[in-house]
Amino acid sequence: MAAEEVGQAPHGEGVVGQLSDWVNDHIRTVLLGPSLVALFVVFIYPATMLLWLSLQNTRGIGETFEPAYNYGRIFSDPTFWNAVEKTLIYSTGSLVLSVGAGLAIALALNKVLDSRVRNTYSTLILISWAVPLSIVGVTWRWMFNGQLGVVNKLLIDLGILQSSYSWLGNSLSAMVVVILADSWSRIPFAAVVLLAGLQSIPQEMYDAAKMDGATTLQTFRHVTLPYLRPSFFVAGLITWMFAFRAFAIPFSTTGGGPGGATETLAVYIHRFGIQLLDYGFASAVSVFLVGVTLIVATGYVYFVLEQIEEIEV
């Protein structure tokens, strides 16, 4: 682009000068090369190995090349489909809660005019996003503990429950708890993205709507929502995609239990790949997860590329 054509740096002398000239002539390689080499080593290498492993039978001792073995097992194994189902419930639940609560928070924050008050609220709300993921899990595990948890204690003291309820020992309530924990960690992100979207709406649009006598609901429907659509798309897509692959939170809250009731695909992969050392099968499941992500990610990449066009115009 233009930056390369303008001007001529003075040519240096000696070894240092020559080196500096070489760097100047190969600026893209020098600045970008190291990153690409690093990504090649830390990403391409293991990703290739993943594909290779998925074609190996690693169930017994050693490895034998049996391309169809693991993929065949996937489709006949009911525990795999259980994990798919749980992952869909988990990620959709977290998506609805995170984006819903995030929207409510963003709309409310946008109404707070005093920036100091607004920043105080944002800071407090952001904290759960920064909490290490396993700490999220053990915290919710502790609160919902059957014998000593504070939730049971509160509900009994308030007279809502007669006796302790085993939240994490029951399939349905365990799923509710992991979804709550996951949303707890994801709400701040959705709120921040949606708030940025709200703040990008020009004030004139609101003024014009007001002049035309629009009700608040009409303004929301015809001004706020259309402008917010890209932020909604991004917040929703990212939240869903990252909840779909969630490992740390379900793993540290319930370990996938009871009886696989909260076993997301990531927990399932970890169980086979790391705990049972059945690399081949875990890799095949990973390839499935990557495939689903790839389809969703393509939508996202298109969105980003569209924005690039806008910038270059």
Partner: peptide, 9 residues
Amino acid sequence: FPPIGLVTP
């Protein structure tokens, strides 16, 4: 790319 996919390799 989902990181869990790279964990095994």
